[in-house]
């Protein structure tokens, strides 16, 4: 199977490319990146060809592309790749506006290609185990969720609204909204949020708390931020607590770690040894393409997660509850 990569602007591109290498039966046919220096460097690293022209790249024979550009460029690349009949794995968030996301989904449908959204958290082993427990009725009925996704400020284009479309709330809300929807099988109907910039001297949000309500009355909180600093023992967290009528279970996707103490400014490091969720995502995408299956995480899933993140900004700005 032949796969190409479109842009290495998002750091996840490196881990996705590493995953492709690990799979063994994949040929990475090329990398399109109009950041020439970066494009040449990664092409060299992964022993493939660099394309500076998107049209030329998409004319190359390949089954699928992985898009890891700046958020606001997802639309352009998805539309072009769909037109070129390539199956697509697109980094989250799907887009920065609902209209763009809908257009992307429609374009993929019309062109008969898969559009999968990169929500790797679904492939975290403990997160997936909790899904099984819920499906097997071990928690009873779900009453509420408590979730967090807090990390470091990624800097670069992430803090430029013209390229990212939003800060920490956009970056760190979509994953856990996707997991809650996946666990519950229901949609969010009300969003209340407070969004602010606290932790860094930047012109974009770096903190937000969301209070959510699902169509069946389940309530939830979410803490999204870039509040973790370099000296903190770990990059950040991805946690979910599911409060059920039979029992409550909390899962931390990065809990599997060893504590390493060293002399220096960062004395304690939590060294993660759990499963590689990015590899799980890539493996799943490749299988979907090979078997012609419906993607496990659809464009619609990406759209619904985006809807909540955008509603959070609106709620904070208008100081009111947003009904979806």
């Amino acid at each position: 199977m032949k796969i190409g990569m479109m842009s290495f602007a998002h750091m996840h591109a490196y881990s996705y490319a590493d995953s492709l290498m690990k799979l063994g039966n994949i040929e990475l046919v090329g990398v399109f990146d109009d950041d020439l220096e970066r494009g040449k460097k990664v092409a060299e690293k992964y022993l493939t060809k660099h394309f500076s022209d998107q049209e030329n790249f998409l004319r190359t024979e390949m089954d699928a592309v992985i898009i890891c550009s700046e958020n606001t460029r997802h639309k352009e690349m998805v539309l072009n790749a769909a037109e070129a009949k390539k199956h697509i794995l697109c980094e989250k968030p799907i887009a920065t506006t609902i209209e763009d996301a809908e257009e992307m989904i429609e374009a993929c449908k019309v062109n008969g290609v898969i559009l999968q959204i990169a929500f790797p958290v679904r492939f975290s082993s403990p997160i997936a185990q909790l899904k099984n427990l819920i499906d097997n009725g071990e928690l009873g009925d779900i009453v509420a969720f408590r979730t967090t996704n807090r990390g470091q400020n990624p800097g670069g284009w992430f803090i430029d609204k013209n390229l990212s479309g939003g800060g920490a709330v956009l970056d760190h809300t979509v994953h856990m909204v996707d997991i809650m929807r996946w666990y519950l099988g229901k949609e969010i109907t009300h969003v209340d949020a407070m969004v602010a910039s606290y932790f860094h001297d930047i012109d974009i949000d770096d903190a937000g708390i969301l209070t959510l309500e699902f169509e069946n009355g389940v309530i939830a909180t979410h803490d999204a931020s870039w509040s973790r600093f370099a000296e903190y023992p770990t990059w950040g967290d991805v946690t979910i607590e599911v409060i059920g009528t039979k029992q409550t279970i909390k899962v931390d996707a990065y809990k599997e770690h060893i504590r390493m103490f060293t002399s220096g400014a960062k004395s304690l490091s939590n060294v993660f040894y759990g499963n590689d969720m990015d590899f799980g995502l890539i493996q799943d995408f490749v299988e979907c393409v090979q078997k012609g299956k419906e993607p496990s995480i659809t464009g619609f899933d990406g759209l619904k997660a985006l809807e909540v993140a955008l509603a959070a900004y609106e709620s904070s700005e208008k100081n009111k509850s947003i009904n979806l």
């Binding site: 009453v143 509420a144 209340d192 407070m194 209070t211 009355g217 309530i219 909180t221 409060i243 009528t245």
Partner: peptide, 17 residues
């Protein structure tokens, strides 16, 4: 702001924002 689950159901969860 306050959000609550149904009091008749245990556990009963309250969120105060």
């Amino acid at each position: 702001q306050v959000k609550r689950t149904t009091p008749a159901v245990t556990p009963y969860h309250t969120i105060v924002t």
